[in-house]
Design a protein around this nucleic acid. Structure first.
Length: 352
DNA sequence: TTCGCCATACAATGCCTGAA
DNA sequence: TTCAGGCATTGTATGGCGAA
């Protein structure tokens, strides 16, 4: 505990020396609202210390001009238990979460279930399909496309929307899923959009895309309707037509810039979230994780200058195995019995 | 094996619309 | 005029495929 206190004090001195404000220091210490309350700060003081304007404070209380709060701070705190960064969400998102999701989250908690994040599992996708199937049977709507895209059926759009509202569409499709209603809704739209998953653009489609963009600009809704492709596919495909970075083999200078930019980021990442065993050579896992994923390719690309973020990403991922082989060879030569016996500094020096 | 192209997934959030 | 419900937009991540 003493070591931890000393370490925290040292960090505070370093932060002050970096010229951080008190609020920035608290944020960087990862201090929670609860810890602030325990220090005796009132809610208002906390808001002031966060540097919020009166307007922001009002919005965060869920108020609009001339209205009272539509949700209480205690509800938000309760929501924070399930969604840690909820305070930073927009007012609209908070309102939706409180209205549709908080009661579901309470139920999950009672049953000892935890919310899920990241990619949807096969079982989750299956559950969405079951929910949609049930909803279609209940409402006698014929196809998922009518259900999720009523605007594509102008003659029935109004009645389709009515049916959805009357049968609590938004909540029903999320039944049995440990996600927010909005997350399930967005996911479902992608699953059931027949204009998705259509394969490569043909030459004709590419030409039409170019022409339509000249005529309609960034009105992707119109372009997508005319091409009968999803909005996402049109927009992304068009973005890729235009951007052409340097082609061909990477020059040594480019590789040098890539390594330098990546190294700089990794250094920062390791400093901000050091792995407990990293320096001791106990657990090489986290460093490998940092090497492989969650790298800010856009920023790295800006540093490399001549290559796109994607080119940098691919080059790095392709280069990783060649970096790993010498490490494996050295580990083999060292003939250590256990990973904890590895002298990682020696390994790093050997690899160069 | 390297590289470029491509489609798609996921998350966040501001904007729009229609009913009350 | 307000606000719930829904939609559009943007940015980023991931991985398959084919050509060189």
């Amino acid at each position: 505990t003493l070591d931890l206190c000393i370490s925290n004090d040292k960090e505070d001195v370093q932060r002050r020396n970096r010229g951080e404000t008190e609020e920035e220091q608290r944020r960087n210490r990862g201090e929670t609202e609860e810890q602030r309350r325990n220090r005796g700060e009132t809610e208002e003081e906390q808001r002031r210390n966060r540097g919020e304007t009166e307007e922001e404070q009002r919005r965060n209380r869920g108020e609009t001009k001339g209205t009272k709060a539509v949700f209480s701070n205690s509800e938000l705190l309760e929501l924070e238990e399930f969604i840690p960064n909820v305070q930073s969400k927009s007012l609209e998102v908070k309102q939706k979460l409180l209205r549709y999701d908080l009661p579901r989250f309470r139920e999950f908690k009672r049953k000892g279930l935890k919310l899920r994040w990241g990619r949807y599992s096969e079982e989750e996708n299956l559950q969405i399909r079951r929910n949609v199937e049930d909803f279609l049977k209940l409402t006698l709507i014929q196809t998922p496309e009518e259900l999720f895209f009523p605007q594509r059926f102008p003659e029935r759009e109004h009645s389709l929307r009515d049916v959805r509202a009357n049968h609590r569409f938004y909540q029903r499709i999320a039944e049995g899923l440990l996600r927010t209603c909005d997350q399930v809704y967005v996911r479902s739209k992608k699953i059931f959009d027949p204009r998705n998953h259509m394969g490569r653009f043909s030459e004709d489609e590419l030409q039409a895309l170019q022409k339509l963009h000249t005529i309609h600009g960034n009105d992707w809704k119109t372009i997508a309707n005319k091409l009968e492709r999803s909005i996402y596919a049109c927009e992304k495909r068009h973005a890729q037509i235009g951007k052409r970075s340097e082609h061909g083999p990477w020059t040594p200078e480019e590789m040098h810039r890539l390594k330098r930019a990546t190294k700089k980021h990794l250094k920062r990442a390791l400093e901000s979230s050091p792995s407990p065993g990293l320096d001791l050579g106990v657990d090489p896992g986290p460093s490998f994780f940092l090497l492989c994923s969650k790298l800010p390719w856009k920023k790295i690309s800006q540093k490399v200058k001549s290559r796109s973020p994607d080119q940098c990403r691919r080059k790095w991922s392709d280069a990783l195995p060649s970096l790993c082989v010498p490490v494996c060879q050295i580990l083999y030569q060292l003939q250590v019995e256990d990973v904890s016996d590895v002298d990682w500094i020696q390994v790093a020096q050997s690899v160069g």
